[in-house]
Design a protein around this nucleic acid. Sequence first.
DNA 1: ATGAAAAGTAATAATGTTACGTAAATTGTA
DNA 2: TACAATTTACGTAACATTATTACTTTTCAT
Lengths: 276, 276
Amino acid sequence: MLAKIKSARDALRKSEQKVADVVLADPDGSVQSSIQSIATKASVSEPTVIRFCRALDCVGFQQFKLRLAQDLASRGTFFYRDVTTDDTSKELATKIIDGAIASMVQVRNQLNYESLEQAIELFEGCDRIEFYGSGGSAIVAEDAQLKFFRLGKPAIAYADPHIQHASAALLDNKSMIVAISHSGRSKDILETVKIAKQSRAKVISVTATKSPLAEISDVNFSVDVDEDSDIFSPVKSRLAQMIVLDILAVGIAVKGGEEMLQQLARARRAIDFKFV
Amino acid sequence: MLAKIKSARDALRKSEQKVADVVLADPDGSVQSSIQSIATKASVSEPTVIRFCRALDCVGFQQFKLRLAQDLASRGTFFYRDVTTDDTSKELATKIIDGAIASMVQVRNQLNYESLEQAIELFEGCDRIEFYGSGGSAIVAEDAQLKFFRLGKPAIAYADPHIQHASAALLDNKSMIVAISHSGRSKDILETVKIAKQSRAKVISVTATKSPLAEISDVNFSVDVDEDSDIFSPVKSRLAQMIVLDILAVGIAVKGGEEMLQQLARARRAIDFKFV
DNA sequence: ATGAAAAGTAATAATGTTACGTAAATTGTA
DNA sequence: TACAATTTACGTAACATTATTACTTTTCAT
């Protein structure tokens, strides 16, 4: 949630930003405050605080406070202290893994189940799915392709922006695309999505809350991870994105019932001869 | 908090016990309920619920809810239970994430730090590194390539077995290869590694303990993940492999000192213009 | 200058909390 | 044992706080 506020901050309205700053400055205090005291601290009106909460995908102030509280609680369990140059290899490994776990816990707490169900429904109405991502997100897109094509519909992943554009132009209203981006601000992916929308394809995104990409998507899965700790290696956001898409894939498989289960088993047996 | 309720339960008054039972029966639901709905569910009055909260050292219902929420967020059970077809989307997501976390914890417990240091040392003596993996492991290999080429040495990933063979034949004793495989029994990857060894390259593997692949490698990172639970989607072993390689990459970067840090920062700035 | 978006005011609804009274249980005394 | 006296448990209803909605004013961009 804290990461979510940080990444959404710039996309918020002026007085909502004031609220964001107040909360970020003292998260622990905020979870115990009423709407009134936060409004006063930020010198804004109370409805503005509510609007702020809504902008962060919460239904109201209470839910916002609960989520924030949970975020703070899980922060304490797995310290994601940054790696330093004088760590022993054991400390290093522990820090990295704990950081990864912390971001998974965050995903668990912030995942929007409505989005999940919407996405599943959209998928069922489509006859093909394409995954777009560049750089690190290209890995996630490919991983998703592997998962999804076992579900019985054509699934493709493109990393090259030019090919993404070309492919997006050829979609129709029975197509679904999944745009994956850490920041949600990559020009290439935004352009790709615009083209896909012109083709009337359904757009799912896996990116930062309130980012330009999230705003133009039909359904967004918010994945917000602290930038700071990514200096050495941006593995955390990638893991988070992968797990979100895994949940989506499994959700679809489960909805598909017995039939789809057998399909999955068949896909697995098909490669058995490859092993000693 | 849950434990607290349980142990305090018998010392509570009769109607407060009813409240305790309601909360214990559905803690997740309770944190989202109002005092009223809990009172109704327990067939007691609202003040009784407050008294119940006070008995648990909370100043009011709100504080109780916050504490309970934090408790739930940080409860570190993470026991993996298999996904079933009648899970709600929430249960499903929770199970998948818990499974992923469980496998991370497993990595943390079984990671061999000696192997880590050996691998770092081997890397320092090499002037190039290649990653080989097929199927799901190809994703991991590509991810590793992204991480490692920022460290200043040529890094390549190959998914195609034929190309792997060809490339492995062209290595020398200043080369390092990383073979990634879930089972460690893929004929293709075993063949690739044999060729690489003939070329005198150093062989690191990320695979199952005691598997054929592990046995013929110079250094192995054991990654063992339950097969059974992979029916729907084999994301867990992939996450585990990725995190192991991330630890290796960060370990190398940290050993590289200030110089390498600047290199990483440079790599990051180079793509800034891509964003809006 | 006009319209759309943003922020605030004031009324309303909901929720939590307190004060008080009644019923039940407990204790002491005849 | 019976019957008050006293304490404890619980609920009712009034109250206060807090969140939310509807509406108005302001601000900004065109």
